[in-house]
Computed example of a mutant assay.
Amino acid sequence: MTLNDKDRHLLALLEQDCRLPNADLAEQVGMSTSACWRRIRAFEDAGLITGYGARLHPEQMGLAFHAIVHVQLTRHDKPALKRFVEVIQTRPEVRDCYATTGSADYHMRVRCPDIDAYNLFLEDFLFTLPAVRSAQTNVILRDLKNR
Rank of each mutant, 00 (worst) to 15 (best):
P113A: 09
N138M: 09
I88M: 15
D114W: 06
L48H: 12
Q89P: 10
L48G: 07
V69H: 00
R95P: 09
A64K: 03
E59M: 07
D77V: 08
Y98K: 00
R95N: 15
A35P: 03
H107L: 11
S34F: 05
H70K: 05
V71G: 00
D105M: 00
V69M: 01
G62N: 02
L120Y: 14
I68R: 05
V94G: 00
L48Q: 15
L141D: 05
R111H: 14
S103N: 08
L56H: 15
R41P: 04
T50V: 15
H66K: 03
A104K: 00
Y98T: 00
R39G: 05
E59C: 01
A67P: 04
D24E: 12
Q60I: 00
S134Y: 12
E86A: 15
P58L: 13
C97R: 06
G30P: 06
K82I: 14
V94A: 02
A54I: 10
R91Q: 14
A64P: 00
F65L: 05
D45W: 01
R83M: 08
A54Y: 14
Y52P: 03
A26Y: 05
E44V: 11
L48E: 14
S32V: 07
T100F: 02
V29I: 09
S32H: 07
H70G: 08
A26F: 04
I115A: 14
E86M: 12
Y52T: 07
D24K: 13
D24P: 05
L25I: 12
I140W: 03
P130R: 04
A67Y: 02
H57Q: 11
R41T: 09
V139Y: 04
D124A: 13
V69L: 04
Q136G: 14
A131H: 10
A99E: 06
V29Y: 09
K145S: 05
K82R: 11
D114G: 07
T128R: 14
A54P: 06
M61N: 03
R39Q: 13
A67N: 07
A99M: 02
F43N: 02
N119D: 15
S134V: 07
T137N: 00
P92H: 09
H76C: 06
H57K: 11
L73M: 03
M61G: 05
A135M: 02
D96K: 05
R39N: 08
V94Y: 01
E93V: 01
L144V: 09
A117T: 14
R142H: 10
P58S: 06
Y98P: 00
V110N: 04
A54F: 11
L56D: 01
F65I: 01
D116A: 13
A54K: 13
H107G: 04
E59A: 08
I88W: 04
H66T: 03
H76M: 08
R109V: 10
C97D: 02
K78T: 09
V110P: 02
W37Y: 08
R142W: 04
K82S: 13
T33L: 08
T50M: 15
I115S: 13
L25A: 10
N119V: 06
A54R: 15
C112S: 09
